[in-house]
Simulated assay, not measured.
Amino acid sequence: MSTALDLSSRQAATRAAAPPALPENPRIARQRILPASAERRGIPRGIRRMAGPVLLVGIWHLLSVTGTLPAEVLAGPGTVLSSAAKLWGTGELPDAMVASLRRALSGLAIGGSIGVALAVFSGLFRLGEDLIDSTMQMLRTVPNVALIPLLIIWFGIGEEPKIALIALATAFPLYLNVYAGIRNVDQTLVEAGRTLGLSRAAMIRNVILPGALPNALVGLRYSLGISWLALVFGEQVNATEGIGYLMSNAREFFQTDVIVVCLVVYALLGLAVDFIVRLLEKVLLAWRPAFTGA
Protein backbone atom coordinates (compact mmCIF):
# COMPACT_ATOMS: atom_id res chain seq x y z
CA MET A 1 0.00 0.00 0.00
CA SER A 2 2.78 2.39 0.93
CA THR A 3 4.59 1.48 -2.27
CA ALA A 4 1.55 2.44 -4.35
CA LEU A 5 1.19 5.72 -2.50
CA ASP A 6 4.86 6.53 -3.03
CA LEU A 7 4.54 5.79 -6.75
CA SER A 8 1.48 7.99 -7.15
CA SER A 9 3.13 10.84 -5.25
CA ARG A 10 6.20 10.62 -7.48
CA GLN A 11 4.04 10.76 -10.61
CA ALA A 12 2.19 13.78 -9.26
CA ALA A 13 5.47 15.55 -8.49
CA THR A 14 6.77 14.75 -11.95
CA ARG A 15 3.62 16.20 -13.55
CA ALA A 16 3.90 19.34 -11.43
CA ALA A 17 7.56 19.85 -12.33
CA ALA A 18 7.05 19.23 -16.06
CA PRO A 19 6.60 22.31 -18.30
CA PRO A 20 3.12 23.03 -19.53
CA ALA A 21 2.26 21.36 -22.79
CA LEU A 22 2.18 23.51 -25.89
CA PRO A 23 -1.13 23.91 -27.69
CA GLU A 24 -1.69 21.77 -30.71
CA ASN A 25 -1.45 24.69 -33.20
CA PRO A 26 0.80 27.31 -31.61
CA ARG A 27 1.02 30.63 -33.40
CA ILE A 28 4.55 31.92 -33.00
CA ALA A 29 5.14 35.44 -34.29
CA ARG A 30 7.73 35.58 -37.03
CA GLN A 31 10.66 37.83 -36.40
CA ARG A 32 13.11 38.96 -39.04
CA ILE A 33 16.71 38.50 -37.98
CA LEU A 34 18.91 41.37 -39.14
CA PRO A 35 22.71 41.57 -39.00
CA ALA A 36 24.17 43.64 -36.21
CA SER A 37 25.38 46.28 -38.70
CA ALA A 38 21.80 46.86 -39.88
CA GLU A 39 20.55 47.55 -36.36
CA ARG A 40 22.79 50.55 -35.84
CA ARG A 41 21.15 53.93 -35.80
CA GLY A 42 22.61 56.99 -37.43
CA ILE A 43 22.48 59.13 -40.52
CA PRO A 44 20.94 57.21 -43.46
CA ARG A 45 23.47 56.03 -46.01
CA GLY A 46 21.74 57.87 -48.86
CA ILE A 47 22.26 61.19 -47.12
CA ARG A 48 25.86 60.36 -46.29
CA ARG A 49 26.58 59.42 -49.90
CA MET A 50 25.17 62.75 -51.08
CA ALA A 51 27.22 64.75 -48.60
CA GLY A 52 30.37 64.71 -50.72
CA PRO A 53 28.81 65.99 -53.98
CA VAL A 54 26.75 68.61 -52.12
CA LEU A 55 29.84 69.87 -50.30
CA LEU A 56 31.76 70.06 -53.58
CA VAL A 57 28.99 72.06 -55.28
CA GLY A 58 28.81 74.35 -52.23
CA ILE A 59 32.53 75.11 -52.40
CA TRP A 60 32.24 75.69 -56.16
CA HIS A 61 29.34 78.12 -55.63
CA LEU A 62 31.21 79.95 -52.87
CA LEU A 63 34.30 80.40 -55.05
CA SER A 64 32.15 81.66 -57.91
CA VAL A 65 30.13 84.25 -55.98
CA THR A 66 33.24 85.61 -54.24
CA GLY A 67 35.05 86.05 -57.56
CA THR A 68 37.86 83.66 -56.61
CA LEU A 69 36.86 81.49 -59.56
CA PRO A 70 36.17 83.78 -62.54
CA ALA A 71 33.38 82.88 -64.95
CA GLU A 72 35.89 82.89 -67.83
CA VAL A 73 37.75 80.04 -66.14
CA LEU A 74 34.73 78.07 -64.88
CA ALA A 75 31.09 79.11 -64.87
CA GLY A 76 29.21 79.00 -61.58
CA PRO A 77 26.55 76.41 -60.66
CA GLY A 78 23.69 78.82 -61.34
CA THR A 79 24.93 79.55 -64.87
CA VAL A 80 25.48 75.85 -65.51
CA LEU A 81 21.94 75.00 -64.40
CA SER A 82 20.41 77.70 -66.59
CA SER A 83 22.46 76.49 -69.58
CA ALA A 84 21.38 72.91 -68.94
CA ALA A 85 17.72 73.97 -68.79
CA LYS A 86 18.12 75.91 -72.04
CA LEU A 87 19.77 72.97 -73.83
CA TRP A 88 17.08 70.65 -72.54
CA GLY A 89 14.33 72.97 -73.66
CA THR A 90 15.70 73.19 -77.20
CA GLY A 91 16.06 69.40 -77.36
CA GLU A 92 19.81 69.47 -77.98
CA LEU A 93 20.73 67.81 -74.70
CA PRO A 94 18.24 64.88 -74.86
CA ASP A 95 19.24 64.13 -78.46
CA ALA A 96 22.92 64.25 -77.52
CA MET A 97 22.36 61.90 -74.57
CA VAL A 98 20.51 59.38 -76.73
CA ALA A 99 23.28 59.42 -79.36
CA SER A 100 26.03 58.99 -76.78
CA LEU A 101 24.18 56.21 -74.96
CA ARG A 102 23.63 54.39 -78.25
CA ARG A 103 27.34 54.52 -79.05
CA ALA A 104 28.45 53.49 -75.57
CA LEU A 105 26.03 50.57 -75.29
CA SER A 106 26.72 49.36 -78.83
CA GLY A 107 30.47 49.36 -78.24
CA LEU A 108 30.03 47.68 -74.85
CA ALA A 109 27.81 44.98 -76.33
CA ILE A 110 30.32 44.18 -79.08
CA GLY A 111 33.46 44.43 -76.98
CA GLY A 112 31.92 42.75 -73.95
CA SER A 113 30.65 39.81 -75.99
CA ILE A 114 34.07 39.27 -77.56
CA GLY A 115 35.88 39.66 -74.24
CA VAL A 116 33.59 37.26 -72.37
CA ALA A 117 33.69 34.64 -75.13
CA LEU A 118 37.50 34.70 -75.29
CA ALA A 119 37.76 34.62 -71.49
CA VAL A 120 35.45 31.59 -71.20
CA PHE A 121 37.36 29.69 -73.89
CA SER A 122 40.73 30.66 -72.43
CA GLY A 123 39.70 30.00 -68.83
CA LEU A 124 38.05 26.63 -69.37
CA PHE A 125 40.59 25.05 -71.68
CA ARG A 126 44.38 25.02 -71.56
CA LEU A 127 44.50 25.07 -75.35
CA GLY A 128 42.47 28.29 -75.30
CA GLU A 129 44.82 29.80 -72.75
CA ASP A 130 47.84 28.92 -74.89
CA LEU A 131 46.28 30.42 -78.02
CA ILE A 132 44.56 33.50 -76.61
CA ASP A 133 45.90 34.70 -73.28
CA SER A 134 49.37 35.85 -74.35
CA THR A 135 47.91 37.78 -77.28
CA MET A 136 45.31 39.50 -75.09
CA GLN A 137 47.90 40.38 -72.47
CA MET A 138 50.02 41.96 -75.19
CA LEU A 139 47.22 43.92 -76.86
CA ARG A 140 45.76 45.30 -73.63
CA THR A 141 48.92 47.35 -73.03
CA VAL A 142 48.46 49.26 -76.30
CA PRO A 143 46.81 52.68 -75.60
CA ASN A 144 43.38 52.75 -77.21
CA VAL A 145 43.73 56.41 -78.12
CA ALA A 146 46.78 55.56 -80.23
CA LEU A 147 44.55 53.36 -82.40
CA ILE A 148 42.27 56.22 -83.47
CA PRO A 149 44.26 57.00 -86.69
CA LEU A 150 44.14 53.34 -87.72
CA LEU A 151 40.43 53.10 -86.92
CA ILE A 152 39.75 56.16 -89.08
CA ILE A 153 41.73 54.61 -91.95
CA TRP A 154 39.93 51.29 -91.60
CA PHE A 155 36.36 52.49 -90.93
CA GLY A 156 36.26 56.11 -92.09
CA ILE A 157 34.99 59.00 -90.00
CA GLY A 158 31.42 57.84 -89.35
CA GLU A 159 29.99 55.92 -86.43
CA GLU A 160 32.10 52.81 -86.95
CA PRO A 161 35.44 54.07 -85.53
CA LYS A 162 33.71 55.47 -82.46
CA ILE A 163 31.96 52.18 -81.69
CA ALA A 164 35.12 50.19 -82.50
CA LEU A 165 37.14 52.33 -80.07
CA ILE A 166 34.63 51.70 -77.27
CA ALA A 167 34.53 47.98 -78.10
CA LEU A 168 38.31 47.72 -77.88
CA ALA A 169 38.39 49.62 -74.60
CA THR A 170 35.70 47.49 -72.94
CA ALA A 171 36.79 44.05 -74.13
CA PHE A 172 39.95 43.78 -72.03
CA PRO A 173 38.54 44.49 -68.52
CA LEU A 174 35.83 41.90 -69.04
CA TYR A 175 38.32 39.39 -70.44
CA LEU A 176 40.71 39.78 -67.52
CA ASN A 177 38.05 39.58 -64.82
CA VAL A 178 36.08 36.69 -66.30
CA TYR A 179 39.29 34.74 -66.96
CA ALA A 180 40.49 35.37 -63.39
CA GLY A 181 37.06 34.44 -62.01
CA ILE A 182 37.06 31.09 -63.82
CA ARG A 183 40.60 30.23 -62.76
CA ASN A 184 39.94 31.24 -59.13
CA VAL A 185 36.95 28.95 -58.63
CA ASP A 186 37.47 26.89 -55.47
CA GLN A 187 39.02 23.55 -56.41
CA THR A 188 37.08 21.92 -53.57
CA LEU A 189 33.82 22.74 -55.31
CA VAL A 190 35.13 21.28 -58.56
CA GLU A 191 36.14 18.05 -56.81
CA ALA A 192 32.75 17.89 -55.11
CA GLY A 193 31.05 18.21 -58.49
CA ARG A 194 33.15 15.39 -59.89
CA THR A 195 32.33 13.24 -56.88
CA LEU A 196 28.63 13.82 -57.52
CA GLY A 197 29.12 12.69 -61.10
CA LEU A 198 28.45 15.98 -62.87
CA SER A 199 29.20 16.03 -66.56
CA ARG A 200 31.55 18.66 -67.98
CA ALA A 201 28.65 20.77 -69.23
CA ALA A 202 26.87 20.53 -65.87
CA MET A 203 30.11 21.37 -64.07
CA ILE A 204 30.57 24.50 -66.16
CA ARG A 205 26.93 25.55 -65.81
CA ASN A 206 26.44 24.84 -62.09
CA VAL A 207 29.88 25.32 -60.54
CA ILE A 208 32.40 27.23 -62.63
CA LEU A 209 30.30 29.98 -64.21
CA PRO A 210 28.41 30.84 -60.98
CA GLY A 211 31.76 30.94 -59.17
CA ALA A 212 33.14 33.34 -61.80
CA LEU A 213 30.06 35.60 -61.74
CA PRO A 214 31.32 38.00 -59.01
CA ASN A 215 34.48 38.73 -61.00
CA ALA A 216 32.45 39.09 -64.18
CA LEU A 217 30.26 41.78 -62.60
CA VAL A 218 33.36 43.62 -61.37
CA GLY A 219 34.68 43.52 -64.93
CA LEU A 220 31.36 44.86 -66.18
CA ARG A 221 31.63 47.83 -63.83
CA TYR A 222 35.13 48.54 -65.04
CA SER A 223 34.07 48.24 -68.67
CA LEU A 224 31.16 50.63 -68.18
CA GLY A 225 33.47 53.23 -66.67
CA ILE A 226 36.03 52.83 -69.44
CA SER A 227 33.31 53.00 -72.09
CA TRP A 228 32.57 56.61 -71.08
CA LEU A 229 36.27 57.51 -71.28
CA ALA A 230 36.51 55.97 -74.73
CA LEU A 231 33.30 57.75 -75.73
CA VAL A 232 34.82 61.13 -74.85
CA PHE A 233 37.73 60.48 -77.20
CA GLY A 234 35.59 58.87 -79.88
CA GLU A 235 33.16 61.75 -80.07
CA GLN A 236 35.99 64.15 -80.79
CA VAL A 237 36.43 62.46 -84.19
CA ASN A 238 34.19 64.34 -86.63
CA ALA A 239 31.07 63.89 -84.52
CA THR A 240 27.84 65.51 -85.69
CA GLU A 241 25.78 64.55 -82.64
CA GLY A 242 26.31 63.46 -79.09
CA ILE A 243 27.59 64.99 -75.89
CA GLY A 244 31.11 65.19 -77.27
CA TYR A 245 29.81 67.18 -80.23
CA LEU A 246 28.22 69.70 -77.87
CA MET A 247 31.45 69.90 -75.92
CA SER A 248 33.51 70.50 -79.07
CA ASN A 249 31.24 73.34 -80.16
CA ALA A 250 31.34 74.88 -76.68
CA ARG A 251 35.13 74.72 -76.70
CA GLU A 252 35.25 76.70 -79.94
CA PHE A 253 33.18 79.50 -78.39
CA PHE A 254 34.75 79.32 -74.89
CA GLN A 255 31.40 78.34 -73.32
CA THR A 256 32.60 76.84 -70.06
CA ASP A 257 29.04 76.48 -68.79
CA VAL A 258 28.10 74.15 -71.66
CA ILE A 259 31.34 72.20 -71.20
CA VAL A 260 30.51 71.68 -67.52
CA VAL A 261 26.97 70.59 -68.45
CA CYS A 262 28.42 67.94 -70.77
CA LEU A 263 30.85 66.75 -68.10
CA VAL A 264 28.05 66.50 -65.53
CA VAL A 265 25.92 64.52 -67.99
CA TYR A 266 28.81 62.11 -68.60
CA ALA A 267 29.16 61.68 -64.84
CA LEU A 268 25.43 61.16 -64.24
CA LEU A 269 25.12 58.63 -67.04
CA GLY A 270 28.09 56.73 -65.66
CA LEU A 271 26.56 56.81 -62.19
CA ALA A 272 23.24 55.53 -63.54
CA VAL A 273 24.73 52.52 -65.31
CA ASP A 274 26.89 51.76 -62.27
CA PHE A 275 23.72 51.77 -60.15
CA ILE A 276 22.17 49.26 -62.54
CA VAL A 277 25.18 46.95 -62.17
CA ARG A 278 24.92 47.23 -58.37
CA LEU A 279 21.30 46.10 -58.60
CA LEU A 280 22.38 43.16 -60.75
CA GLU A 281 24.95 42.23 -58.13
CA LYS A 282 22.29 42.22 -55.40
CA VAL A 283 19.98 40.04 -57.48
CA LEU A 284 22.47 37.62 -59.02
CA LEU A 285 24.74 37.32 -55.98
CA ALA A 286 22.06 36.99 -53.32
CA TRP A 287 23.41 33.50 -52.58
CA ARG A 288 26.86 34.89 -51.75
CA PRO A 289 27.02 36.75 -48.42
CA ALA A 290 29.77 39.34 -48.40
CA PHE A 291 31.21 41.94 -46.08
CA THR A 292 29.34 45.25 -46.44
CA GLY A 293 31.50 47.46 -44.27
CA ALA A 294 31.72 48.09 -40.56
Rank of each mutant, 00 (worst) to 15 (best):
M1Q: 06
A4W: 00
L5P: 02
D6I: 11
S8H: 05
S8G: 00
S9W: 00
Q11L: 08
A12E: 14
A12Y: 00
A18F: 01
A21Y: 00
L22H: 05
P23M: 02
L34P: 00
A36I: 05
S37M: 01
A38R: 01
R40S: 13
P44M: 04
P44S: 05
R45P: 07
I47L: 15
R49N: 12
V54Y: 01
W60V: 10
H61S: 15
L63E: 08
S64P: 09
V73Q: 07
T79C: 03
L81C: 10
A85Y: 07
K86D: 15
G91P: 01
L93H: 03
A96C: 06
A99E: 09
A99C: 05
L105Q: 06
G107V: 07
G107S: 08
A109V: 12
G111T: 10
G111R: 06
I114K: 00
A117L: 13
L118S: 03
F121Q: 08
R126V: 10
G128A: 11
D133I: 00
T135E: 01
T135R: 00
M136Y: 04
Q137T: 02
L139G: 09
W154Y: 06
P161D: 10
I163W: 05
I163R: 11
I166H: 10
A169C: 12
T170S: 14
F172H: 04
P173H: 07
L174W: 05
N177T: 13
Y179G: 01
V185L: 05
V185A: 08
D186G: 11
T188E: 12
L189K: 11
V190P: 10
A192C: 11
A192H: 05
A192K: 00
G197Y: 01
G197K: 02
L198Q: 10
L198P: 13
R205W: 11
R205M: 13
N206C: 12
P210W: 01
P210E: 05
L213D: 04
N215I: 00
A216K: 01
Y222C: 14
Y222S: 15
W228T: 13
L229T: 15
L229K: 15
L229P: 07
Q236P: 05
A239N: 08
T240H: 08
G242V: 09
G242W: 03
G244K: 02
Y245G: 01
Y245R: 03
A250P: 09
R251T: 12
F254A: 15
T256I: 07
T256L: 06
T256F: 04
D257K: 05
V258H: 07
V258Q: 11
V260F: 13
L263P: 09
A267G: 15
I276N: 00
I276T: 14
V277L: 09
L280S: 14
E281V: 08
L285D: 10
L285W: 07
R288N: 11
P289I: 07
P289C: 05
A290W: 01
F291A: 12
G293D: 07
A294G: 11
